[in-house]
Simulated scan of single mutants.
Amino acid sequence: MDTDTIDGQPRVVATDAALAFIDEIRKDYPDILFHQSGGCCDGSSPMCYPADDYIVGDRDVKLGEIGGVPVYISASQFEVWRHTQLIIDVVPGRGGMFSLDNGRERRFLTRSRMFDGGEACAIPLVKRG
C-alpha cells in the first residue's frame, strides 16, 4: 500500500529549520531514521536514531521521507493519525533520552494538519493482521 501521499499530498513534511537540523545531525550520524514516538516517556516526539541502531518493526508504517531520511510510525498510531499530515519542526529544548537531538539544545517536534476535502476521501485503511 502506498502510504507516502494522500491525494498527492505527502503524509510527512519538514520545516526548513528541521531540514537544517537533520543536516547537522547527519554530519555526526550519516544514516538516520525517524520513528514517531507514541510512548509515555517521550510523548509524541519524533525520535531520531542511527538507522543501524533501530529495528523497524513488521507493523511499522513508513510515512515517507524528509531530507532523504525515512519516517516511520507504528501501525496502531497510524490508524489514529491516518487523517493528518505530520509536520516535523524544531523548537528549543531537550530531545528524547535516546533520540539524536538530545543534548543539542533543540529538539524535533511534530505538528500536524488534518487532511481535508478530497484528501480525506482518498485515505486508505490499513488492514490489520
Rank of each mutant, 00 (worst) to 15 (best):
Met1His: 08
Asp4Asn: 09
Asp4Val: 00
Asp4Gln: 09
Ile6Phe: 04
Asp7Ser: 07
Arg11Ser: 02
Arg11Met: 00
Val13Cys: 05
Val13Gln: 10
Ala14Ile: 06
Ala14Asn: 14
Ala17Cys: 04
Phe21Arg: 04
Asp23Gln: 14
Ile25Gly: 09
Arg26Thr: 05
Asp28Leu: 04
Asp28Thr: 07
Tyr29Thr: 12
Tyr29His: 15
Tyr29Glu: 15
Pro30Arg: 03
Asp31Glu: 14
Asp31Ser: 04
Asp31Pro: 05
Leu33Ser: 03
Leu33His: 07
Gln36Ile: 12
Gln36Tyr: 04
Ser37Trp: 01
Ser37Cys: 05
Ser37Asn: 14
Gly39Lys: 01
Cys41Thr: 06
Asp42Phe: 00
Ser44Asn: 12
Ser44Pro: 11
Pro46Met: 11
Pro50Arg: 13
Ala51Leu: 07
Asp53Phe: 00
Tyr54Gln: 08
Arg59Phe: 12
Asp60Ser: 03
Asp60Leu: 01
Val61Thr: 08
Lys62Gln: 11
Lys62Ile: 04
Leu63His: 03
Leu63Asp: 09
Gly68Phe: 02
Gly68His: 06
Tyr72Cys: 04
Tyr72Asn: 07
Ile73Met: 15
Ser74Ile: 03
Ala75Tyr: 10
Gln77Lys: 01
Gln77Phe: 05
Glu79Thr: 05
Val80Lys: 08
Val80Ile: 06
Trp81Tyr: 15
Arg82Lys: 14
Arg82His: 14
Arg82Cys: 06
Thr84Leu: 02
Thr84Cys: 02
Leu86His: 10
Ile88Leu: 09
Val90Lys: 13
Pro92Ile: 00
Gly95Trp: 10
Gly95Glu: 07
Gly96Gln: 09
Met97His: 00
Leu100Tyr: 00
Asn102Ser: 01
Arg104Ser: 02
Glu105His: 12
Phe108His: 08
Leu109His: 09
Thr110Glu: 13
Ser112Gln: 14
Arg113Val: 09
Asp116Gly: 11
Gly117Ala: 10
Gly118Tyr: 15
Glu119Ile: 01
Ala120Thr: 15
Pro124Leu: 04
Val126Thr: 09
Lys127Val: 04
Gly129Gln: 08
